[in-house]
Write a protein that binds this DNA or RNA. Structure first.
Lengths: 157, 157
DNA sequence: AGGTAGAACTTGACGCATCAAGTTCATCTT
DNA sequence: AAGATGAACTTGATGCGTCAAGTTCTACCT
């Protein structure tokens, strides 16, 4: 690697390591949940009927079905969402946000947005905001060679 | 958030979530160790005497002393490194890479570099390589307000 | 109609991370 | 010189993530 590549890689580890750690710690402190748990609830809350099928939710949150199943199980125990089998459709299962779950997302959202701004967005110049979109898209493409993912579904091309 | 900020944030999650997952999985598969374990061994291998004090190693790897202590304990059991108290200096402890540990790093390095290239570096245009340096530095600064970190120590300012 | 393949989860075991608390030194204070 | 403070780790409990294996349906094949 040449020096630009090396510097880029080192700088990248701040994004890859420190950022998620900081966001996770803050979410835990302010809202007593994991960053990933928040993602799940938040994605559900944006659906018109606050419902999504497990496998679709897994894709949207970039998680394995196994991981999602564990997490949804815990969130269900806490009463934040509920599962229901879709009849006549194999093992397909819908997950629906409860009122309590919706309230939790609404309560956590401002702190989350503030954190994302504070740690990332607000310290970037406009050109770097654009660059970050390209970089993220490139990484996504390199890892998931053309499969549909959370980022690829939302990126203009 | 406006649409550029939102898009940047979404793209960012590819870097924050998919990239470490991909690198970790590959390191596990190819070299039977964690990405973080590799970092520890690799950082040590770059020191002239293959030795570093625990707390310095913690800063360089962006880990808490607790996390590092656990990991170093395991690596020591595997015979990849050794700890030794520095006499007359409180609880200060040095960690030294063993020959076996050095061999492991050397064996794992090519695969690691290839992965970093494949998933990140090689899919970026030169200008984005530079942008990534700025973005990483900005994130690092926003999170660790001025404290010395792994990235801040290696970034030209 | 019976059997096979495969999609969509679920489960359990195991390993790793985090947090809070504990330990062990050295140094500073009075 | 005794006690307090703080630095530098270590330890243990708890919870989350991952992987491999298991379950439960549907659909296709012949």
């Amino acid at each position: 690697m040449n020096s630009d590549e090396l510097a880029a890689w080192l700088a990248n580890s701040a994004i890859m390591i420190s950022l998620p750690a900081a966001l996770d710690a803050r979410m835990q402190r302010e809202s007593q949940m994991t960053f990933f748990e928040y993602m799940v609830l938040s994605v559900l809350s944006e659906e018109p009927d606050r419902t999504m099928q497990m496998s679709a939710l897994a894709v949207r949150t970039s998680a394995s079905l196994s991981r999602l199943s564990h997490v949804v199980g815990r969130l269900e125990k806490r009463g934040l969402l509920a599962r229901s089998r879709i009849p006549g459709a194999g093992r397909r299962t819908n997950t629906t946000l409860t009122e309590a779950g919706y309230d939790v997302v609404v309560a956590a959202a401002p702190g989350h947005v503030a954190a994302v701004r504070e740690y990332l967005i607000d310290s970037l110049e406009p050109r770097d905001l654009i660059a970050l979109q390209r970089i993220g898209a490139a990484v996504d493409a390199a890892i998931n060679h053309g499969r549909t993912t959370a980022t690829s579904a939302t990126t203009a091309h």
